[in-house]
Amino acid sequence: MVKTIKVLAISGSLRQKSSNTALMHAIVGLARENMVFTIYNGLGDLPHFNPDLDVDDGPVSVLELRSQLNEADAVLICTPEYGNGVPGVLKNALDWLVSSGQFMNKPTAVVTASPTPMGGDKAHDSILLTLNMINARIVEEGTMMIPHINLKLNNEGVITDVLTKRGLISLLESLVRACS
Rank of each mutant, 00 (worst) to 15 (best):
G44F: 01
L90W: 05
G83M: 10
T130P: 12
L129V: 13
R66C: 03
D73P: 09
E71I: 00
I77E: 05
F49V: 04
T160N: 08
P51H: 09
H148I: 00
L94K: 02
V89W: 05
K165I: 10
G101Q: 08
N84L: 14
Y82L: 06
N154R: 08
G44L: 05
D161Y: 10
E71P: 01
V162Y: 11
R66G: 08
A109P: 03
I146S: 10
P47M: 07
T108E: 01
D57K: 07
K91A: 14
G85F: 09
T116K: 09
L163V: 13
L151E: 15
L168D: 10
V111E: 10
T112R: 03
H148E: 09
I169M: 13
E71A: 15
V60N: 09
A72W: 04
T79Y: 02
L168E: 10
I146M: 07
G167P: 10
V75C: 08
A136K: 05
V98H: 07
P59D: 12
V110G: 00
E71Y: 10
V60G: 00
N50W: 05
L97K: 00
E140P: 08
T116H: 12
V111W: 10
I169Q: 15
T164R: 08
L43P: 10
E81L: 02
T108N: 02
S61R: 05
L129T: 13
L168W: 13
L43N: 04
L131A: 00
L171V: 03
L43W: 01
P147K: 02
V158Q: 15
L131C: 03
N92Q: 05
I169R: 14
L131V: 03
L46N: 04
G88V: 01
G85Q: 12
E141V: 00
S99E: 14
G157W: 12
L97P: 11
N135W: 09
L153Q: 09
E64L: 11
L153W: 10
D54Y: 08
V98E: 02
L65Y: 02
L172I: 06
G85V: 04
D95Y: 05
K122N: 13
F49W: 11
V86I: 15
N84S: 13
L171M: 12
R137W: 13
K91W: 04
L94Q: 03
V139Q: 01
L69D: 12
G42Q: 05
I149T: 07
N154G: 06
K152T: 02
Q68F: 04
S126K: 08
D161W: 06
S126C: 07
L53G: 03
N50G: 08
M104Y: 14
N155M: 10
I127D: 03
D52L: 13
Q68I: 00
K91Q: 12
A109R: 00
G58T: 01
I169S: 13
V110E: 01
T108L: 03
G142V: 03
L151D: 14
G101A: 02
G44D: 07
L69R: 06
E81Q: 14
D52R: 10
P59W: 06
L153T: 09
G101F: 02
S100Y: 14
M145N: 14
T108I: 04
P59M: 05
V62H: 04
T112F: 04
E156K: 15
T130G: 09
D125W: 08
W96L: 00
D57C: 01
H124Q: 13
N155I: 03
L97G: 11
V158P: 11
